[in-house]
């Protein structure tokens, strides 16, 4: 499988990355180089193999559903590019 420049434009849109117009051709070439290289995985017989999502052999832990942290509004906001009166300030998102 390979990607076209239009595909790369679409993927960039999905990933919310500004269209890399000046590098579109180069990027398409690089991605196709990597895709060609990973094609070799088709040689592997994976019939009946269960996908492996983690190397951990323990079940995911659970804890009591209780508040363990909080009350640190100012710390949470300290790194915000923009904040006012205890809130994050973000671009308008609802018309």
């Amino acid at each position: 499988m390979s990607v076209t420049e239009d595909d790369v434009r679409r993927i960039a849109r999905l990933a919310r990355i500004a269209e890399p117009s000046d590098r579109l051709a180069a990027l398409t070439g690089e991605l196709n180089g990597i895709l060609d290289w990973i094609e070799q995985l088709n040689e592997v017989d994976v019939e009946g193999v269960e996908p492996m999502t983690t190397p951990v052999k323990f079940p995911l832990p659970q804890r009591e559903d209780a508040v363990t942290d909080g009350g640190i509004r100012d710390k949470v906001l300290a790194n915000a590019p923009s904040s006012e009166e205890g809130f994050f300030v973000v671009p308008k998102s609802v018309e």
Partner: peptide
């Protein structure tokens, strides 16, 4: 950016099984 684009592609509809799921099986 290259990795985010590649990751977005292999997880996107129509390619998930061919790439991502396949890789998880080879991982095993």
């Amino acid at each position: 950016q290259r990795r985010i684009l590649m990751g977005t592609y292999v997880l996107s509809a129509g390619y998930y099984d061919a790439y991502y799921l396949k890789a998880l099986k080879v991982r095993r």
